[in-house]
Amino acid sequence: MLELRLVQGSLLKKVLESIKDLVNDANFDFSSSGFSLQSMDSSHVALVALLLKSEGFEHYRCDRNTSMGMNLGNMSKMLKCAGNDDIITIKGDDGSDTVTFMFESPTQDKIADFEMKLMDIDSEHLGIPEAEYHAIVKMPSAEFARICKDLASIGDTVVISVTKEGVKFSTRGDIGTANIVLRQNTTVDKPEDATVIEMNEPVSMTFALRYMNSFTKATPLSNTVTISMSPDLPVVVEYKIAEMGYVRFYLAPKMEE
């Protein structure tokens, strides 16, 4: 028996919108502490890790650990039928090959049930080692989205360099080059507008902008984004989901031949 009631149903809608274009199918792993998902994109360049903790739900019941394979495109189609103010409940029964999404309007005058077929997905969890990162940049998520979008109109890859001076995003393409430098800025009215750079050692890495732009679909989930880099590891682009968990995107770097 599985029953999860999320008053802020729009959060789940936003989570799906942020990952559905990167990952086609994924196993949702439910346990008593919450649910999680880990999946690579089809070309094995990026990996999504999602965690939503049980504390964030108004009601959370999961009698035993269970894994449900879902097509994220189909799940997104169903969740789009929920209103932004709706309460969303996920229900499942042991051994069933379907999952039910229930949408309740805030005034309880409209209640909808959508039953979705589950699928068998072969997926192995990758071991993600704990890492000390050379540099961690926390910045407004909208600013990061703007930079990725702007640079993608010039080039295909972005070089992200962190030094004492700040964080630099660079690209080059047929029409020319672009460099955007952000300096640490903590003297802002609202903490979410700050750019905070924690640097143990300078680092400079190259990534495909196509993936970075895909990650920025998570921007509505959080006012801030954290970018963690070490030379010999995939970059981690993390959007925290208030009080509940996170969506993390890992992207393998491009290396010089």
């Binding site: 495909a208 010999d232 393998a252």
Partner: peptide, 14 residues
Amino acid sequence: MSRQKSILSFFQKP
């Protein structure tokens, strides 16, 4: 030229 690395060259299958 730069080559795209795979996630699998960093994170191990169990």
